[in-house]
Design a binder for these strands. Structure first.
Lengths: 205, 205
DNA sequence: CGAAACGTTGACCGTTTTCAATTACAGTGG
DNA sequence: CCACTGTAATTGAAAACGGTCAACGTTTCG
């Protein structure tokens, strides 16, 4: 999860390029960051807002591939492609950093350590995504929320510090916020968790 | 999706190591591939069967982090860790390739091209996983199946060749196979798709 | 100080899951 | 060569669960 292992991927990307080569761009809601077919010239990191990546399907329907939030990077795969393979549209007003592809590639090839660091950050991203996907395999909302809590629990007695609103967490869990609140209420009532402002304690059974 | 862009990650891993250094291992169902805390000495690629990655949560419950299937790799993140952070248990009889961590790291640092290739394969894996995750955000079973079909459609007229059983596809979609069959029946009846043994055609509307 | 987002709970309805049953087919072993 | 077992493909019916809508108090923020 991006909280447990803070998304070091965007950090790795940023530190791999000279600050002077990074451009900060602003887009209004609905604006185009890039289009499918444009020359792939940069990898992006979102400082604020969200960007929707989508593609036209073979039968002419726009498919959402991913919605990237603040702190995340996108279009990493453009490093190995001449053109972008999807559209990137600002879903909200957004501030992004554009990291020139050429600089990233140069940095990776010139310094093997740099390439490896980048690869390791990606590997950790892969692990996180797989875990998020596995969470979604849990059908029951209550069980899903409980598993999420366990995944994020630290310390002894084990507890979770909430860094984001439940609304956002619900989104990550693939549930509505209502379902999450109900799950929390149920878990608390069953004595599996205890909540107090910004912190959830997991109770041993 | 691993079908659209065939999981080149495992291929990249395998070709990065001298064949003589790769060991093929067999485990029976239920056997342990490695345990949390064991010295991280290899990255694995599954030739057949499935392996469950799980971890003990802080409150003493075993959490499934990921279930890796044939063709997939796992424990890539062990490249950057001294010890494995989870248990790997064979869910079925399984054949895996163990790629020594030392060899992989050596290959990546000695040849910058190698490291970059690996990073790019990981980036593409990240893209695939994000797309799978995004699919799960579609609540309606019918819409989800349709989106999956569009995502995998190729050619003109656009169609999808089925490489796996619907049962397996249902699993990837996070639905029961029954729900998928019903979705397919509905789509066919609505005239959105046409099926004939092993191939689904997407009909323009 | 309003507007917008968050937190919370209740009720209802639609969808999916579950459970069950059936057909088809591939591989196995006697 | 044929029962026999296991998986895949379907479809139906009932039950459970989460989504949606509604309502309301609270907090946040420009």
């Amino acid at each position: 999860m991006s909280e447990l292992s803070p998304d070091s991927l965007s950090d790795r990307l940023i530190t791999a390029v000279q600050p002077s080569r990074i451009s900060q761009l602003r887009f209004e809601r609905g604006a185009t960051v890039f289009r499918q077919g444009d020359i792939a010239s940069a990898v992006f990191v979102i400082e604020a807002g969200r960007v929707r990546l989508s593609r036209m399907s073979a039968d002419g329907v726009q498919l959402v591939l991913y919605v990237a939030n603040a702190g995340e990077s996108f279009a990493e795969a453009s490093l190995s492609a001449a053109h972008y393979h999807c559209d990137a549209i600002a879903e909200t007003d957004v501030i992004v950093l554009a990291l020139p592809k050429a600089d990233l590639l140069a940095s990776m090839t010139s310094d093997p350590m740099q390439g490896m660091t980048f690869a390791l950050a990606l590997a950790s991203q892969v692990r996180d995504l797989r875990t998020k996907l596995e969470l979604r395999n849990i059908r029951s909302a209550t069980e899903r929320v409980l598993a999420w809590l366990r995944l994020h629990a630290t310390g002894s007695p084990s507890h979770v510090l909430l860094r984001r609103s439940w609304t956002l967490i619900a989104e990550e869990l693939g549930l509505t916020r209502e379902a999450v609140y109900r799950a929390l209420a149920k878990l608390e009532q069953q004595g599996q968790i205890a909540r107090k402002e910004g912190c959830v304690h997991l109770l041993k059974r």
